[in-house]
Design a binder for these strands. Structure first.
Length: 569
RNA sequence: CGGGGCGUGGCGCAGCAUGGUUUAGCGCGCUUGCCUUGGGAGCAAGAGGUCGCUGGUUCAAAUCCAGUCGCCCCGACCA
């Protein structure tokens, strides 16, 4: 491709709308343009990068025997009612009505459609296992899209679905995908981590997320270096010491704490540290009002709570409910004398002589111990953090940030039961198919690559997903020999299968260098007038500071060598 | 949905508190010519704006008032 002919609108200045690095650089380098919030057009350069990602994904999927299909992005309401997600999915599901008053939605995911397809077409165990995938545009009407294509409403996703005759087969399919994902992200040049994750909206029994490590990542990963335990924050469990407490019952006292409603306020008012306080948090749930007890300096992990109690709905109670249940305004709730079910974090078992709310305005109670009130049990309910004990070994947990680029779920029978996806086994018995589903954020991968690779001059893209592998750059565009040599070199590279671009523009060198760096092309071949006269050219790698001077006759060979080396690293 | 902010040539912004000397200005980009060619050069000449929209106040509105639309940021939310 000739640079002069390609539509590459680069920008020197930072666009106002972009705050994160990948978003800013993708706009500046002419990868994307915004059409509406969370909706982007992919320009030639960005699209090339996306297509390279897609190619890697297809190759690895196909290697595992997964077969590509393409499902519609508009889906009928009926299927979603059948899976019971029409009501459950919430506002992210964009719904609309056609001229015949049929209700439809734009697919945020395709479990329903694929399950419908397979249940209609597959009858026999002989047709299983089956893994189908597609690369398709999804739409999720995010409350607040941000960070460019990182959290867009419209985005491209690879989604695969596996159907097996039994658990064992499903596990094999799951592991195949797990393996393929590792290969895909390796080939994309990522530093990544696989973590245990919550199954969320998709549902199912267990799941793993593939996280690209980046300081700017939206997700927090909790991991243990000693045993390799890794989970996302929602899911992360915490280990507990088994130190027995001395005091079980206390001689507690009411104290006046006028106007002190927050943990910090009460603690400093009473002259104790926040971890001597016990918070009593009141929730409204689909199973009634409940209370959760947790140490004053910690937060409740609502995902763990939901999973523990099998809740569909969980929300902090409003002021009215709190007053009705505790008899006092918010800020003075405590466990003593409450009649609602109370669930305590396991930390509470280890606390002695602590402070709780008095269930009375401006009153707290000190010197409380765990047998002074009744709880339904002690569970792991807090949000894990740096320094907590590992749940699996004696190690310590630490937290890092990541960008979720892949997520695999073992669905089990959730959709096959709901939508009656069955087959006949070898005994002629009807059985439910065991399913799994596997997603990769295709467009997000490009953003993640930039978050992981950039400097003050622009992107530093891995060769495998860079829009071009090599930029052939003559310094002086009015020097005929430079231009001729450059063009020749460029053509030969193309013939050898190298994805090269030739910067034939009549621009000053600075402009060309800056653009090349901004776009992050991994290999630059610089053709300078003086060097050329002496029989030399230069090769510079984007991620290295200095360039190498070499004989012009060796250029092709050396460039190809660079491409190969970078591909296999 | 709550809180904050912003809408002025393609992009980034100034002007607005105190309406009128502003013919709405600056930087980048764009066009043409000259010049220049190892890090977004220089000189010269140009093109390009219903000041988001609607209504109001006024002799006079980018500027004041009301409404409205759009966007961005923080939060709740979330594959």
């Amino acid at each position: 491709m000739l640079f002069s002919k390609m539509f590459i609108p680069t920008m020197k200045e930072d666009p106002k709308e972009a705050e994160v690095i990948s978003h800013r650089l993708m706009l500046r380098a002419g990868f994307i343009r915004r059409l509406a919030p969370g909706i982007y057009t992919w320009l030639p350069l960005g699209l090339k990068s996306v297509q390279k990602v897609e190619r890697i994904i297809r190759e690895e999927m196909n290697k595992k025997g997964a077969q590509e299909i393409l499902m519609p992005f508009v889906q009928p309401k009926e299927l979603w009612v059948e899976s019971r997600r029409w009501d459950k999915y919430g506002k992210e599901l964009l719904r609309f009505t056609d001229r015949n008053k049929r209700e439809l939605c734009i697919g945020p995911t395709h479990e329903e459609v694929v399950t419908d397809l397979v249940r209609k077409e597959v009858r026999s165990y002989k047709d299983l296992p089956l893994t189908l995938y597609q690369i398709q545009t999804k739409f999720r009407d995010e409350i607040r899209p941000r960070f460019g294509v990182m959290r867009a409403r419209e985005f491209s996703m690879k989604d695969a679905y596996s159907f097996d005759v039994d658990e064992k087969g499903a596990e094999k399919s799951y592991m195949d995908m797990y393996d393929a994902y590792g290969k895909i992200f390796d080939r994309c040049g990522f530093k990544f981590m696989v973590v245990e994750a919550d199954t969320g909206q998709i549902g199912g029994s267990f799941s793993h997320e593939f996280m690209v490590l980046a300081d700017t990542g939206e997700d927090i990963i909790i991991s243990c270096e000693s045993c390799g335990y890794a989970a996302n924050l929602e899911r992360a469990e915490v280990g507990f010491a088994s130190k027995p407490v001395q005091r079980k019952k206390g001689e507690f006292n009411k104290v006046e704490t006028p106007g002190q409603t927050k943990v910090g306020e009460v603690a400093s008012f009473l002259g104790v540290s926040p971890d001597k306080l016990l918070k009593t948090i009141i929730y409204n749930t689909d199973k009634g009002v409940i209370g959760v007890l947790i140490k004053g300096d910690r937060e409740i992990n609502e995902t763990k709570l939901k999973n523990l109690l099998c809740l569909d709905y969980l929300e902090l109670a409003d002021e009215g409910t709190i007053e009705r249940v505790t008899g006092s305004p918010p800020g003075f709730s405590g466990p003593i004398g409450l009649s609602i079910p109370l669930y305590a974090d396991r930390d509470v078992e280890l606390m002695e002589d602590f402070v709780v709310g008095g269930n009375e305005k401006d009153i707290h109670i000190t010197g409380v111990n765990k047998d002074d009130f009744n709880v339904s049990g002690f569970y792991d309910l807090k949000i894990a953090r740096n320094g907590d004990k590992c749940p699996n070994c004696s190690g310590t947990l630490s937290s890092t940030r990541g960008i979720e680029v892949g997520h695999i779920f073992k669905l089990g029978l959730k959709y096959s039961e709901a939508m009656h996806a069955v087959f006949l086994d070898s005994d002629g018995k009807e059985r439910f198919m065991v399913m799994g589903c596997y997603g990769i954020g295709v467009t997000r991968i490009v953003a993640a690559a930039i978050e992981q690779g950039h400097d003050e001059n622009g992107m530093i893209l891995p060769l495998a997903i860079s829009p071009f592998e090599v930029d052939v750059l003559p310094v002086n565009s009015s020097h005929r020999e430079s231009m001729e040599f450059g063009e020749q070199l460029y053509k030969e590279l193309l013939e050898k299968g190298v994805d090269a671009i030739f910067d034939d523009r009549d621009e000053r060198p600075g402009v060309k260098f800056k653009d090349c760096d901004l776009i992050g092309i991994p290999i630059r071949v610089t053709i300078g007038e003086k060097n050329l006269k002496e029989g030399y050219i230069e090769i510079k790698l984007r991620h290295e500071k200095t360039s190498q001077r070499m004989k012009k006759g060796e250029a092709i060979e050396r460039v190809i060598e660079c491409v190969k080396r970078t591909t296999h690293q």
